[in-house]
Write a protein that binds this DNA or RNA. Sequence first.
DNA 1: CGTCAGCCGGAGAGCGCTCTCCCCCACATT
DNA 2: AATGTGGGGGAGAGCGCTCTCCGGCTGACG
Lengths: 351, 351
Amino acid sequence: MANEAPHTPPRAPTLEDVAQVAGVSRATVSRVINNTRNVDPALHETVWQAVEATGYVPNRAARSLVTRRAGSVALVVSEGESRNEDDPFYSRFLGDPFFGRVLGGVLSVLNPAGVHVPLTLVGSETARTKLVGDLRQGQLDGVLVLSLHPQDPLPRLLTEARVPAVLFGRPAEPIPISYVDIAQQTASKLASEHLLARGCRTIAAIAGSLDMPAGHDRLVSFRSAMAQNGYAYVPAVEGGFTQEGGERAMTRLLAEHPDIDGVYAANDVMAQGAVHVLRDSGRRVPDDVAVIGFDDSSAAVASRPPLTTVRQPVEDMAAEMARMIMGQIDHAGARTTSVIFEPTLVVRRSA
Amino acid sequence: MANEAPHTPPRAPTLEDVAQVAGVSRATVSRVINNTRNVDPALHETVWQAVEATGYVPNRAARSLVTRRAGSVALVVSEGESRNEDDPFYSRFLGDPFFGRVLGGVLSVLNPAGVHVPLTLVGSETARTKLVGDLRQGQLDGVLVLSLHPQDPLPRLLTEARVPAVLFGRPAEPIPISYVDIAQQTASKLASEHLLARGCRTIAAIAGSLDMPAGHDRLVSFRSAMAQNGYAYVPAVEGGFTQEGGERAMTRLLAEHPDIDGVYAANDVMAQGAVHVLRDSGRRVPDDVAVIGFDDSSAAVASRPPLTTVRQPVEDMAAEMARMIMGQIDHAGARTTSVIFEPTLVVRRSA
DNA sequence: CGTCAGCCGGAGAGCGCTCTCCCCCACATT
DNA sequence: AATGTGGGGGAGAGCGCTCTCCGGCTGACG
C-alpha cells in the first residue's frame, strides 16, 4: 500500500483540469461557463461534458477576486444605538413570523440566482462600520435592510457610502434610498369600510409606536379614511406593537369610551391583546366589539376568535427587494426607486 | 477641473498600500494583521497605524483563495424530497419563533468571530448537490442543519462527503454526525411530575409526528416517566405539531377518555389547540384539565390561560452548534460529538 | 488573386493575499 | 576570532479565475 496522499482530500477540479479534459484552453472553458462570447457549438458541448465528467464547481473566491463581485447580498437586521447583539430583543424580532416571511421572499429570488444571503445583526457602531467596510471592500455586493428603530443611523450611512441598499418600509427620515412599502391608505380604507359596513359606529384605534413610520402612517391614514366617511375624530392609544401594550391600550380605550364597538389595531398581537381585554370585560367579539388586526401573522389564526386582519404581501415585497438590489448591483448609479404594494383584507371571525 | 477618474471610486487600499505607508513589506503587514509570528513591537505599532490611516480592510476573496477557507458557515433548512423552495411550508417554518431563536444563537457566536452565515433552503436534489459542491469546493466551511423531515437524505449525504456539519436534534437514522439535542427524559420527568403533583390522575398526551425524532422521543420518554410513577399506560393521539392537529387530537382524546384531567402536548401550538377544545367543551383550564406545552414559544404567552411549558435553551443549543462547527473546521478529522441540554419547566397558568 | 474585416481560440497578466524560503544580523558558544 | 543559532524581515511564487490582447483562419469584396 503506497502512502501517497494518505489524508489529502482529492483536490477539487479547477478550470485547468476541465480544460485539459476537454482539450481546450482555460479561457475557452471560462467563456463557455459564463457564456460570454460565441464559442463553437461543438466545443461548447465538449466543454460541458468535461465539466460533468470532472464534477467541476467554479471557485467563488477566485472569481470574486477578479470580478470584484462577492456574489452575496446581506440581509441586515438593524437597531439603533441602544442595543447590543445579545439583547433578547433580537431573538424576539427574529422569531417574529414577519421576519421569516421576509427571509422566505428574499431567498426565493436570491438562492436560485446563486447569490449567498448572509444574515447580520447590526446594533452597534462597530458592527455598522464593519458592515460598510465589507460593502466598500466588495465582500458584500449590497444590503437588504430591516431597520427597526426610527433613529437608526444605518440607512443614512448607506446612502452616504453610495452602496447598493434597499429598505423594507420607508425610511424614518427622508433620505434618498430605495425601498418597498405598503399602501397604508388602502389598508386603512379596507379596515374602516369593513368596520363601518358591519355597523360599527364608535370606532377606536390601537396604534403602533408613533415614532416608527409604520406606526405613524397606519394611524394617520386610518384617521383620514374615517374622516372621509364622516367621522371627524378617532380616539387612539399607542400600544407599542406588543401584546401587553395592546391590552393596556384597550383597557384605557374602554375606560374612556365604554361604548366602543369597533377597533383597528396596527398589528395582530396588539389586536390579540385587545380581544383578551374585551372578553375579560364581558364583551363578545365580534358581536359587541369588532376587532381588526394587521399582518395576518400566526397570532391571527391562533387567536379566538381568529382575527380579521390586513395582510401585506410580505413575501412578494421581499422578493421585489431582492430584485431591486440585483438591479442596483448590475447598473451602478441607477436611480433610487420605491415600490408600493397593495394590502388585502383577510376576513375571519373577529370582524 | 481635471477629469482624472471622473467616476472611478477610490480603489480600496490593499496590503501593498499599507506596506508602503508603513515602510515595510507586504509580508510583514500580513504577519501583523494575522499576528502569525513575532514581529518587532515598534514595527507592529507602525503597521497598525498605517492600517488605521489607510482604512484598510482585508479582502476576503483573496484571503480565501489562498487559505482555502471561506470564512462562512451555512445555516441550512432542509426538507426531504417532496417539497420545493416556493412551498409556503418554508415560510411557515421560518416564521416559527423557534427558527428565530436558533438564528439568534448561531449569530451570537459566528458574527463576532467574523464568520458569515449564509442562509439556504434545501428541498430538492439539485439544491442538495449544489450545497455539497459548495462545501467540497470550499465556498462553505461547514453547515449547520435544521432537518425537518425524517427521510431527509441530507445528513447522510454530508457524512458521506466527510464535511463539517452539525445537526439540531438527533438524526432520524443512526449515522455518525454531530448534533445538539435536549434531554427528553428530563422534559418528560418535569412534565409528568408537575401534573401528578397538582393532583392529575388521568393523564393523556398529544404527540408530535411520530416519525420525527422529537415527536417520537417526547412520547416514549413521557410514557416511561409516567410508568415510573405507576401509570402503566398513557393514552396518546398524534397531533402532527400543528394547532389544528392538536384540536383534533384533544377532541378524540376527550371522546375516548372524558375524565381526562391532565394533558401533555409535544409543542405549544398543539397545546393551544387543546386548550381551545377543552374550553369549548365547557372544561376549565387548569381547574378541570391541566395542560402542559413544549417550546415556550410566543404561543405559550399569547394563549389564554398562558401555557405552562417545557423550555429548551434553544439559543444556547444553537450557540453550541456554532462552537462545535468551528471546532470541526479547525481540527479536521475530529470525532463526531453530541451535546445534550437540560430543559426547564416554565410554570404559567395552564398547569 | 490579394486584401481586409470579422470571428474564434490561446497566451498570459494579474486580482490581493498567504506562506515558504532565504538572508541578514545580533548574540551566544567554543 | 570563527562558528553556530535563532529571531525577524523581504522576495516571490502561486491560489483559480477573468479578460485583454493577439494571432490564425475564413469568407467577402475589389
